[in-house]
Every structure is written in structure tokens, then in C-alpha cells.
């Protein structure tokens, strides 16, 4: 099907997310705006205004009631999804690079940038879901500074009090956020910055992408590398396609080098790799700049990619995508 081009941002995309049902798509960008779209037709539902800096990250709870965003204006904000009202604002000394809800929406983890003498910090907040949502505690429930290389991405795991983090050095680690203790780590998961980390639907494994041109699937408990996908371009995002055995990888030449390379050279394509065979099965072209973020519909019926070019492209999969059995009929667990 023809991709839907969402032209609502003036600057490069930083993160896009589907809600749990997949009918809404949230996108944030360096132009300070968060947009929400209908995923089925690309119509814009509204915006969340108020940030005074590049919005680096968003996450949405499972009921599509609250939205959290982290931005370069050093704030973490809680929004009402339906009304677009900012419910609460936390202020930090440095920019917020990554936020994530836990699986029952009671907690939010955020990573703040290491800058101006402030160390990279991980904070976990309890979200008060009673009432309007404006009554939140100012202080984080838990706070710690991960030692060593700074964290770039994170997510809650199913293990109690444990989050998984990806680091600038390429390390992937598990932290107990109550104690700040590193439980498990894989120092050599990647050899460059971990750019994205997305969990499988049941949160038992995760896929990471890195500037070292490699994406990997890790077991979330042991952090063992299960699968490796080696491409020829730095990767910015990796996503898992539910129902079909594919992973989607996006990236391209570094944004700063883009002007010196041709479109062809940039490799601004979404790559589909077979999850189990570790073989590339296809590519989708379209962006004029590196792909910064990819998200797949929770039911696996469409995917969206956001690029450095400021566009979000929503691709609904054709029937053939679901029917094709390029490797014969094989039962593969999701």
C-alpha cells in the first residue's frame, strides 16, 4: 500500500511510538512539538505544546491516558493524552534523553544527559494515577548515577526493580533501580553507542541497534546475544515485527556527513531482516535522510519510520507480507 507521509514536523524526528492499541501514533521532534496521529489514515489528531527545546523522547501508557516526554529544556513532562494538557513538569539540571513507562504504568524511568559537570542520572518516578494526574511528587522515588559509560537508552524489565540500559560505550546492562547496583552487564554487546532498545511484546527479549552498524537480539535476563544482524551502515533504530519473524532496522550515514554523500550512498532505507536466519529479506526506500526511529504497530499490521528529513512515513503492510512464506512453512515463535 502507498505509504502515508506525515508532514507535521519542521525538524528531524527523534522518537515515534504507537499506543497499545496501535490506533494512535505519537511523534516527537527537534522542533519542540509532539504530534499525535491516527495511524490508519495519517490524520493529525493534535499536538502537545509547551516544550522549549528539542523533544528527545516520548512514551505512552497502556491505557492511552498519560504521555510522558523528555526534552532538551531539561524537563520531563506528563501530559493528558486526550486533552493535550500538560499535567506536571519535573525540572532537571540537564536534558532528558529517554523515558519509559513500566508495564503497569505506575512508574516512569528517565535518563538525563551527562553535561556541565552533571553526571548521567537515572531517575524513577512513581506516577499517581488518581484524579487528574496533576498531583505528582516532585522528588524521584529512586535515583542513581550509573558508573562508567553514560546510559543512552533504557526500559523496564519484567524482573522486579530491574531496568535494562544501553550505554554510550556499547554496553548493555541490567540495573536494580532501588539500589543502583549493576546486576548484569555485557560490555561487548556493541562497539559503539547503543542508539535504540526496544522490547519484545512479552518483554522477555529486546533488540538493540548501534552506531557500530550492528543490531542484536539479547535475552533480557542473561543479556546473552541471541541473534546478530550486521549491516553496512550506522544504525539508529531497531524494532521487532510482531506476528512475522522480522526485525526492522533503520539508520544511514551520520546526519553531519549527509551533505557530502549522495542519496544512494546514504542508505536511508528501512531494512527487514529475518529474525532467526539473520538474513536480509528486503528494504523500503523513501527517506531523504537517515532514519532516526522506527516503530511497529502492536498488532504488526503497519510500521512507521521517522527520519532526519522531518517526515514520518507510515507503511501499512500488504496482504502478501502476511501470506508470503519465503523460507517455506515454518513455525517460529514470536
Amino acid at each position: 500500500m502507498r505509504p502515508i507521509l506525515l508532514q507535521g514536523h519542521e525538524r528531524s524526528l527523534t522518537q515515534i511510538k504507537f499506543n497499545a492499541e496501535g490506533d494512535l501514533l505519537f511523534s516527537c521532534s527537534k522542533d519542540h512539538v509532539i504530534n499525535v496521529w491516527y495511524s490508519h489514515n495519517g490524520e493529525r489528531l493534535g499536538t502537545y505544546d509547551g516544550n522549549n527545546g528539542s523533544v528527545w523522547t516520548v512514551d505512552i501508557d497502556s491505557e492511552s491516558r498519560f504521555l510522558v516526554s523528555g526534552a532538551a529544556d531539561n524537563t520531563l513532562r506528563l501530559w493528558n493524552v486526550a486533552t493535550g494538557k500538560c499535567l506536571y513538569t519535573w525540572e532537571f539540571p540537564t536534558a532528558v534523553k529517554r523515558v519509559a513507562f513500566n508495564e503497569d504504568d505506575t512508574k516512569v524511568v528517565c535518563i538525563t544527559e551527562q553535561r556541565m559537570g552533571h553526571k548521567c542520572a537515572v531517575r524513577v518516578f512513581d506516577i499517581n494515577r488518581e484524579g487528574e494526574g496533576t498531583d505528582q511528587s516532585e522528588e524521584p522515588a529512586y535515583f542513581f548515577n550509573p558508573i562508567g559509560s553514560k546510559a543512552t537508552v533504557c526500559a523496564f524489565t519484567l524482573m522486579p526493580n530491574v531496568i535494562i540500559t544501553g550505554h554510550e560505550s556499547g554496553k548493555v546492562a541490567l540495573f536494580n533501580y532501588k539500589t543502583g547496583e549493576e546486576i548484569e552487564s555485557n560490555e561487548r554487546a556493541h562497539s559503539d553507542v547503543v542508539t535504540d532498545l526496544q522490547l519484545s511484546k512479552d518483554r522477555t527479549y529486546c533488540v538493540t541497534s548501534s552506531k557500530d552498524k550492528i543490531a542484536r537480539i539479547h535475552d533480557i535476563k542473561s543479556l546473552m546475544v541471541i541473534k546478530t544482524y550486521t549491516t553496512e551502515t550506522p544504525l539508529n533504530s531497531a524494532a521487532l515485527a510482531p506476528t512475522r519473524p522480522y526485525v526492522l532496522l533503520g539508520g544511514g550515514q551520520e546526519a553531519m556527513h549527509v551533505t557530502t554523500t549522495s542519496l544512494r550512498q546514504g542508505k536511508f532505507e528501512t531494512r527487514f531482516w529475518h529474525k532467526v536466519y539473520e538474513e536480509e529479506v528486503g528494504r523500503v526506500k523513501g527517506h531523504f535522510g537517515p532514519i532516526n526511529t522506527i516503530a511497529v504497530h502492536p498488532a504488526g499490521t503497519c510500521y512507521a519510520s521517522g527520519g532526519e528529513d522531518g517526515f514520518v512515513r507510515v507503511h501499512h503492510f500488504d496482504d502478501s507480507y502476511f501470506k508470503a512464506q519465503p523460507y517455506g512453512v515454518v513455525e517460529i515463535d514470536d
Binding site: 497499545a20 519484567l158 527479549y205 533480557i220 535476563k221 532467526v276 502492536p298 514470536d334
Partner: peptide, 30 residues
């Protein structure tokens, strides 16, 4: 494929208890 499926089964079994203890399982709803 066999290795993958075996690993999936193993990790699912491992998390089954923990995952559902926390309350809302993601897959039960969807």
C-alpha cells in the same frame, strides 16, 4: 528455527510466573 523456538519456550517459562505477578500482563488484553 529449532534453537530459536527452544529458547523462546525456555524464556517464556522463566518469566511466566514473574510476568503475571506484576498484574496486568500485556498479552492478556491484546
Amino acid at each position: 528455527v529449532d534453537e530459536w523456538n527452544a529458547w523462546r519456550a525456555r524464556s517464556k517459562a522463566e518469566f511466566l510466573g514473574e510476568g503475571h505477578k506484576t498484574g496486568k500482563g500485556t498479552d492478556s488484553r491484546s
